[in-house]
């Protein structure tokens, strides 16, 4: 692997009150990769993303982004630095229109013309959203909301996109579409860190995967190896 490491998380711990959720997570993401973070419910996948994006304070450890220490930066600085986090369960603003949701994704972009340009790109990529531009986001279907959440996360033109369970609650067909979008985003040069319950989908788009178990990384493998070896997968995921 010649690509440089853009995100390096080392020995990260984090807690909700007194309940420690991460007991020293280390992982690396290289430029242009799609890396999957897999593991059972409650393993700490979302917590890892939340700590990277500044929603949750790290207790110890270090998060380095393109060589800079961004540990415990506030969320707005993390976004400005080029990381974008598309959260679990979509979290679109239900009482705002699709277009308002989208444009707010580019909140930190000072130029209105530039936001126009990015919104036009997003509508080009997601024609369904264009059709529903004036509709309240709360009235969209689950799949459409997921597309909107991804499109919104892309409005800051991130170099790293962190996606948390983008296929959750979607029909297999819808999930297919979402993963096609993830592949497409990655082809356009955006590095992706993907959290998924649906391991087969995750491994179909990722090149490498980290397995998380109760707040610790227990394995790091090529996605192909895991895909071709169901027994190996079972050992890690206990399924």
């Amino acid at each position: 692997m010649s690509a440089r490491t853009v995100l390096a998380v080392s020995d990260l711990t984090a807690a909700y009150g007194n309940a420690t959720a991460l007991h020293g997570v280390s992982l690396e993401v290289r430029e242009g990769e799609t890396v999957a973070l897999i593991g059972a419910n409650g393993a700490g996948k979302s917590t890892t993303l939340r700590t990277i994006s500044g929603l949750l304070a790290a207790r110890s450890g270090r998060i380095a982004w393109e060589g800079k220490d961004i540990t415990n930066w506030p969320a707005d600085r993390v976004v400005a630095a080029g990381l974008s986090h598309c959260p679990e369960e979509r979290h679109v603003w239900p009482e705002m229109t699709v277009e308002e949701n989208l444009r707010l994704g580019g909140y930190l972009c000072g130029s209105r013309r530039e936001v126009d340009r990015r919104a036009a790109l997003a509508f080009g990529r997601f024609p369904r959203l264009q059709e529903r531009a004036g509709q309240l986001a709360g009235t969209l279907s689950g799949g459409e909301q997921q597309m909107l959440a991804i499109a919104r996360a892309l409005m800051s033109e991130p170099r790293l996109l962190m996606l948390d369970e983008p296929s959750l609650g979607l029909s297999p067909k819808m999930a297919e579409d979402v993963f096609a979008v993830v592949r497409d985003i990655n082809r356009h040069g955006v590095t992706v860190l993907l959290v998924e319950q649906n391991v087969h989908n995750a491994l179909s788009v990722a090149s490498r995967a980290y397995v998380l178990e109760t707040g610790r990384v227990t394995a790091e493998r090529n996605a192909g190896d895991l895909r071709d070896d169901p027994d190996l997968l079972r050992t890690y995921l206990g399924g």
Partner: peptide, 13 residues
């Protein structure tokens, strides 16, 4: 006010 977490993730303080 509709979703503070999503607002933070968009860079809103």
């Amino acid at each position: 006010f509709q979703d503070a977490m999503a607002a933070k993730l968009s860079g809103i303080r």
